[in-house]
Simulated scan of single mutants.
Amino acid sequence: MHQPARSAAPGLDRVWSLARGWSEYSRTRTFAGGWFFRAVETETDSRPGPVRDAVVAVRREWDGYLAHHVALAVEAGDLAAGTEPDQVVFEVVGLLGAANDRSLLLDDATADDRALRAVRALLVGRGADPARLP
């Protein structure tokens, strides 16, 4: 089982741990319909009101947390200078979300592994040391 992401050092190690944890969460189907918030996001995205507002707040908190750790990785020199944390978050969330969707809709058992490989390539492409992303 994957260690909690908060046990990883802040910055690149935490970003990678979060991605791995997210992938494991999707793969193990804690909820029968995949990620609870992914399902709720798609259900409420065009329905104004307090439920949508709460879902938006959770998404922004998650994205902000992930962006903070990407920014720490840039500051530490673990990712290339000029790397835009919000862009990395957009791509990581997109890849992992697509894996969840494909694994559910298409019963694709390889989707989570492929998404995690893509996240790793994304981080390496922005200067991360591949040895730190097992």
Rank of each mutant, 00 (worst) to 15 (best):
P10L: 08
V51M: 09
L105N: 15
T83G: 10
S7W: 09
L79V: 04
P10A: 10
W35N: 05
A19D: 00
L116D: 06
V93F: 11
A111H: 10
V89T: 13
L18D: 05
V93E: 13
S26E: 10
L79K: 02
L106E: 15
D129L: 07
Q3E: 12
R126L: 11
A9G: 03
V119I: 15
V124A: 04
G64I: 02
T30L: 12
A80Q: 10
A128E: 04
V70F: 00
Y25L: 10
T28F: 05
R20T: 08
P85D: 05
T42C: 09
D13A: 12
P10T: 07
E91I: 14
D63R: 09
R126N: 11
R52D: 03
A109L: 15
P50M: 07
S7F: 09
R59I: 08
S17C: 11
V92R: 00
A81E: 06
V92Q: 01
V92P: 00
E75M: 04
D13H: 06
G21C: 09
D113R: 14
W35R: 09
R114V: 12
R132N: 05
R132Q: 07
T110P: 12
V93S: 14
R52P: 03
A111Y: 11
A39P: 01
D78K: 02
L72E: 07
S103L: 14
R20C: 11
D45M: 08
T42W: 12
D45E: 08
Q87C: 13
D113I: 10
V56Y: 01
R47I: 10
G33H: 13
A5C: 00
F36V: 11
R60V: 08
N100F: 12
D53I: 01
V55R: 00
S103R: 15
E84H: 11
L123S: 05
P134H: 09
A57M: 03
A111N: 12
T30N: 07
A131I: 06
R102T: 14
A128G: 07
E61N: 06
E43S: 05
